[in-house]
Design a protein around this nucleic acid. Sequence first.
DNA 1: CACTTGTTGTTCTTGTTATAACAACATTTA
DNA 2: TAAATGTTGTTATAACAAGAACAACAAGTG
Lengths: 254, 254
Amino acid sequence: MAESQDELSNIAESLKSLGLTKYEALVYIALLKVAGATATEIHEISGVPRASVYPVFDRLIQKNLVSVSNTSPKRFDAMPPEEGISNLLASIEDNAQEAKKVLSDIFSQRIGVERGTQELIWSIYGLDNIHIRISDLVHHAKQSIRIFCNMQFFTPGMIETLEASGENIAIEIIVDQWTGDVPRNLKVLIKKAPIGHGIDNKIITGGVFLFDCKRVMVIMGPQNEGLTGLYSESDGFVRFFSSYWRFFKDWARK
Amino acid sequence: MAESQDELSNIAESLKSLGLTKYEALVYIALLKVAGATATEIHEISGVPRASVYPVFDRLIQKNLVSVSNTSPKRFDAMPPEEGISNLLASIEDNAQEAKKVLSDIFSQRIGVERGTQELIWSIYGLDNIHIRISDLVHHAKQSIRIFCNMQFFTPGMIETLEASGENIAIEIIVDQWTGDVPRNLKVLIKKAPIGHGIDNKIITGGVFLFDCKRVMVIMGPQNEGLTGLYSESDGFVRFFSSYWRFFKDWARK
DNA sequence: CACTTGTTGTTCTTGTTATAACAACATTTA
DNA sequence: TAAATGTTGTTATAACAAGAACAACAAGTG
């Protein structure tokens, strides 16, 4: 009964992403604590207005998270969370599956590829999104991956992704330091590089990622928030950063 | 480009359950059709007001479903749906995982079991929910399962569930007819039973399900909507339907 | 018995938030 | 300049949150 308010609202958030409302989450959580409770008891435990408890129960019953007794007063019981959540998730996964199928279909018939997409430079915002996209690019690389950035970028997950890439892909990394083991398939050059400047009391990070000498991702910006990635398949863009890479590789070898 | 309006709104629904709003869904779908489109083009295809397109794009970009070019006018591009949806789903699954963990914890410390839960009769509404619950009960059965209802109940999924239950569980079924193969582990008695009456032009369905002679589920009501299931572990309830079962079994053998 | 008290379930308002929809404007671009 | 683009507000709308009010009923009390 000693959940921190913080943790409780954290779970409420998780449940919301599963399609529950705030009240639904609170009522369900309260009901997990007391088997066969009445509406009034749940109202007292959860803090949800007593009148609101009833429609909330209706919805939870529809979602098969709760059952009612036919006694008077009504008593409510929660499904075990393992099963309840699995049921919720299952229906979402069904939807995702369905959506994937139809949308992939639409995607495969897309038009406008002739419009020189490859000449454009695309922006990606946020560290998480950049990580996702780079993981993606790593997965799709066929021959070579070249990375030039500082160690902060190499989260355990990212190292794992690189480690799991095809064996016949040459991965070269120039980095300011390396903590932990270096996976066998990585060729790491360590050199304190002039990237990562401090401006306005913020640490500015930079990084260049080349895939198969055809695709480039450049990242720049403050460390945590507002990080921007630029992605391009443009010839000029790729050429520019290829020579940028070659320059720093020579420099790092000294 | 010939998706029925129905199918399109169907997908929009699916995407909503993945956390997208109506506009986000419409814009994303439109963007899948045209690579590297401008805001105005998307506005025309999707029917979303032009001014609304920009904030919608911002949100889609945050969710890593869309990237922007740095040209003028801005051009937008959709992530392949396979990856985009997987990313969305992954974060929901993380939440579900997290929620399961914490809620199971709360659930295991629940109080009030002494309150004679087993004497109550619980209601479950809707065919889908009843199917889920019965599948659940089948999974947890240890010794015997006894079913008395008509064939409509035995969907392919339900038959599969029964077939996959433990080998040392005795499963006896009394049913009005059986279409398809009878799985080896089921003992089926076929007999046109006086359940399934027609009242008010609606077909009324009934069914009795006994698990380990300890738990009973009774279903009744119109076939599709408004179907109600009653579940109980109450001694009296179980006894009543046990003799109900015995009576029909004798009758079915004649 | 009439009367109070408390509980339960339902029905209505009111406030609040997140989208949705649109008008208006400044800025580009051709 | 005319058209297209991007941004900023304002107003609607719908869902949810929050609580007030009420009828029905059961249990206790004089």
